[in-house]
Structure formats: C-alpha cells, structure tokens
Design a protein around this nucleic acid. Structure first.
Length: 492
RNA sequence: GGCGUUGUGGCCGAGUGGCUAGGCUGGGCUCUGCAAAAGCUCCUACAGCGGUUCGAAUCCGCUCGACGCCUCCA
C-alpha cells in the first residue's frame, strides 16, 4: 500500500491562511507549479532557499508514493523592471549593458542556476518550461481574455482590466486586499500611462523599435507580460485546475494575484487548490535582494570569500542550516548560525555512518515504531523539517548509546531503524554525506596505518609522537576518536 | 499611510491553553595517558501592560519593536 494512504498530510494554504488536510484532485497524483527564477543574474542564497523548500516538499511527496508532476519555469522574457510604462525588460537590459544577445544572458544564468541547484543536491523538476517557448500559448490566453471583455488594447499593448474583473470576482482574494485600498494607496505615475487604472497590468507589451526581444502578435510586435507566462505554462502542463502552486512570499502580490485573475478570467475557474508561500531569507535582518546589494551568493560558501563568512562551507551544511528552520518562517543568515549547523550536521552524519557497525542484540531498549511515526508526524505537519531533525537527533543519541553498549536493538529493529534514518536524511531532507568522497578507500587505508603507528607509540608511552599523529591529522580535517573498542576516525 | 506576518533562554530555531523541542555554546561528571569524540547532567525562556481561564509563552485587547508586501524581487 502506498505510504500516502497511511500518512495524513496537512499543509498550510495561503489562500485560507490555515493548515488543511491535503487531498489531491486525483488520488495518487499531484500537480505542482513553482515560480522559477528570472535568469538575468546569478541566483542568490535567498532564491536557493525558496527552491530548496519546494525540493523538500517534492521529495516528501515522492517518498509518500505520489506521482508528482513538478513544473518549475524559467522566466526568460517579460519581467519588467517596474510596472510603469517606461519599465525595461530585465533580460533585454542586461543584454544591452553587456552587448550580448538576450538569449546569451538567459543561457548564462540558466546554466548558473542549474549548477547551483545541483551542488545543493536538488532533484530536477519534471518539466522546466520557458516563457519564450510559450509565446503562442500566451497570445491565445490574451485573445480569450479580450473576448471576455476583461482586457483592452492601447497602442499595441494589452492590459488586464482589474476593475472590470473585480466587479464580479475578487481581485485580492489571495493577498487579502481590497481594490479600493490599493486605488487610494497607489503612487501616482507620471501621467504618461496607457493604462486605464494603475492597478491594471500588462498582458502584452508593444516593443520599442530598439527592443530586440519581440514576437509577432495580433496587436503588435512585442513581448508578453510577466504574470502571463505562469498561467500559460501551468495551464498547459497541469490543466485549468491543479493542486499546488508555490513561490516566494514576495510573489504573493501582485504576481500570484494576477495569475489568479488571468486564469479565472480565461478558464472560468480558480486555478489552484493550495497556494504555498515560502518565507524570506534575511541577511543582517533584511531581505536578501539583488537590488539592495544585501545578499550572498551560493558560490561564496565554496570559496569562503565573503565578508559574511569566516570559512568555507560544504553544500550539505548550508542545506542542513536551511532545513533547520520551517519554510514559512523568516530565516536570518549568519556565520554563527551556520557554524552551529555545521557541527550538528557532522554529528548527524557521523552517527549515520556508525549504523553499519552496530551489532544487534536479543532485545530492544528503544521504541523504533513510535520514533519512526514521530518522524512522519513532523513532516505530515506542513513539512516541519526542524521537528524532523529534532527527531533524527533523538536517533543520533540512541545510535551512539548502542555503540557504547548502553542501549540495544534487535536485528529487526536495527534494520527498520537504519531504513528510516537513511530515508529521512538522504531521500527526504536530501542531505549528502560530506564525510565520504571518492578517495575514501585509499584514505582510510592510510589513516588506519597511522592509527596503528599511534597505538604502538601509545603502548610505548611515547605521548609526544602519538599526540603529534593525532594533532596533525586533525589539522587536515581527520579526527581520531578513541573508544572502548579501539580508535575510529571521521573526516570533517 | 494601508494590508499582512512576527517578537521564545548566550546564539539559531520548534511548539502553541496544563505535559522535554532540537542544534550550537558554557559549567559539572563518566570514559581517556592527556585530549577529542560519545554518554549523563546543570544553566529553564517565551517583548511590555491589561483581560479571559482553575490554569497562558500559547486565546483576546492595547502599547512598543522587527520584518514583508503595497514599484521589480524567491
């Protein structure tokens, strides 16, 4: 029987602001759409956090036995710098500044995005569509919305008529806004606007003569608006109605609100059952953002070359750090917090690695079944990875005690225990073991030899030599551990 | 100004009406040639002020602070 039939999952739905029992439209299948990056620059760590949250969610769904179609787009056109008519397309601007083709910009940062995600051990989505690959679909949606009378054309550009839509529907249903409020609080534009109302948003923009990203449409040579691509691609691959739509908290308004309006306008139904929003990663208490310069790049961890970092960190440590916070909480980044996570991470890994060396006993002193369900309960409660990790540390303590002979497990319990811990650590949390690498076989042979030499020195009470071997190894990241049954080591 | 979120011990971070979060750090003990590792143990907090309740960090109100969105942002 599939695991999802045994585990009742609750997830927090931004649409209702409540935790709800999760029930997919079609039993056993999940359609999930996540707003991907706009590839006009390198992804920063805040971007990574969002996608990591959904990687965790995707992994857990898969573990539960769901067939998941996970769609995460690449925005490669249409994302304007601001909503004023003077706003420039981010990618076109970057191309202009660097004097290269827009598609070179797109290619460069798409590759960077994939490289970064691979380093952090992300599972690839099922489909990763691009906005430029779905111009026709976007044009078709615009036609439908115009036919419904909810969009209008001005000088070759097409805008969504928010006020008109709001007459029969609620624009602001997701972000809990009233259109009246935003009318009163909208900053005055410079009076040049083609839009009937400042709240209206572009479905299609006519390209200026110098603009190099342009496509033919019934209205003009131009390009699609930012919000539209997600509606086009989610509808195409997941249907008019699907289970989950996710993205960063900052996309809730206006991006997701606009998506709802467009989809609702063209398909006559609410597109998404569960909206999920991940919270921000902050640096110095402020949101990480390219525009303010307050950010840290993933690559900084691997070089250690940043004023925010005291040393080099391996990717799983960063991953572990992020998973120690719930995806809906703001997480503040600091070197101290990362150092603490690093220690915890290695403690966890060292215990996992001990598992294979444990010997079974006639009886168990640990309730494996309850502990295992505790792990599931944590994840079933809106993907509460911090609580899961707390449970895993209960396991760590227990493993170490078994090793020391203070606790015991039957063969059956031992294998259940092993399976559970490996499943959650590697499959669900997606943590890689940084204590092993390709050269581990040769390395351990050499370290075993040094341990032997040190033991000889210790037997001769030659503490100078024995301590030298131990300390020199530690300097190189190899830690010797003297236990009852001899010396073991770990590579940190 | 509007909408929303939030304020937890030295630090990071769960929880949310009575019952241990967890990690890191610091103190003590065991083990050890000494350490480290590991185990045990101690340090026991919920911004402030009122209210509801037998009982609130947890619910309600107010105050103060922080953050996010309201223009692009994961």
């Amino acid at each position: 029987m599939e695991l999802y039939k045994q585990q009742q999952l609750k997830l927090y739905n931004s649409l209702s602001n409540k935790k709800e029992d999760f029930k997919p439209l079609i039993e056993g299948f999940i359609g999930m759409y996540v707003c991907g990056p706009t590839v006009y620059s390198n992804v920063h760590l805040g971007n990574v956090r969002t996608f990591m949250s959904f990687d965790l969610i995707y992994r857990y769904f898969k573990h539960l036995g769901y067939k998941v179609r996970y769609v995460r787009n690449i925005t490669d056109v249409g994302h304007l710098e601001n909503d004023a008519d003077t706003g420039e397309d981010r990618i076109a601007k970057k191309a202009r500044l660097e004097q290269i083709e827009p598609m070179e910009v797109v290619q460069r940062y798409t590759v960077d995005f994939h490289n970064v995600l691979n380093k952090f051990n992300f599972l690839p989505p099922s489909i990763e569509p691009t906005a430029t690959g779905h111009i026709i679909e976007q044009i078709e949606i615009i036609k439908v919305i115009i036919d419904k009378g909810l969009a209008y054309e001005v000088n070759g550009s097409v805008y969504f008529d928010v006020l008109k839509y709001n007459e029969k529907e609620h624009y602001g249903i997701l972000s809990r806004r009233n259109i009246e409020d935003s009318i009163h609080n909208t900053r005055e534009l410079d009076g040049q606007s083609e839009k009937k109302n400042p709240q209206d948003f572009a479905l299609w923009k006519k390209a200026q003569p110098e603009h190099i990203m342009r496509w033919l449409s019934p209205w003009s040579d131009g390009f699609p608006g930012w919000h539209l691509e997600c509606t086009a691609m989610s509808t195409k691959y997941l249907g008019k109605q699907f289970d989950i739509h996710g993205g960063g908290m900052d996309l809730k308004f206006p991006h997701h609100e606009c998506e709802i309006a467009q989809a609702n306008a063209s398909n006559q139904q609410m597109p998404v059952n569960y909206w999920m929003h991940t919270n921000m990663l902050t640096l110095n208490g402020q949101k990480m953002a390219k525009s303010t310069g307050n950010y840290i790049l993933p690559n900084d961890f691997f070089t250690g070359d940043s004023k925010h970092l005291s040393k080099v960190y391996v990717p799983p440590v960063v991953r572990f750090f992020m998973l120690q916070a719930n995806y809906r909480s703001i997480l503040d980044f600091s070197d101290d917090a990362l150092l603490a996570s690093e220690k915890g991470y290695y403690r966890l890994m060292n215990a996992v690695n001990l598992l294979d060396n444990l010997t079974a006993s006639k009886s168990s002193t640990f309730d494996v079944k309850t502990w295992k369900q505790n792990c599931y309960d944590a994840m079933n409660d809106d993907f509460n990875s911090p609580v899961l990790i707390a449970q895993l540390f209960e396991g760590v303590k227990f493993i170490n005690s078994v090793r020391d002979g203070n606790e015991s497990l039957t063969q059956e319990d031992l294998s259940a225990f092993k399976t559970t811990i490996n499943t959650f650590v590697f499959d669900v949390l997606g943590l890689e073991d940084a204590t092993v690498d390709d050269s581990s076989d040769k390395l351990s042979g050499i370290v075993e030899m040094l341990i032997e030499m040190r033991n000889e020195a210790r037997a001769n009470k030659d503490w100078t030599l024995s301590d030298k071997i131990r300390d020199k190894l530690l300097e190189r990241g190899i830690q010797l551990k003297d236990g009852k049954d001899g010396t073991t080591f770990s590579v940190n």
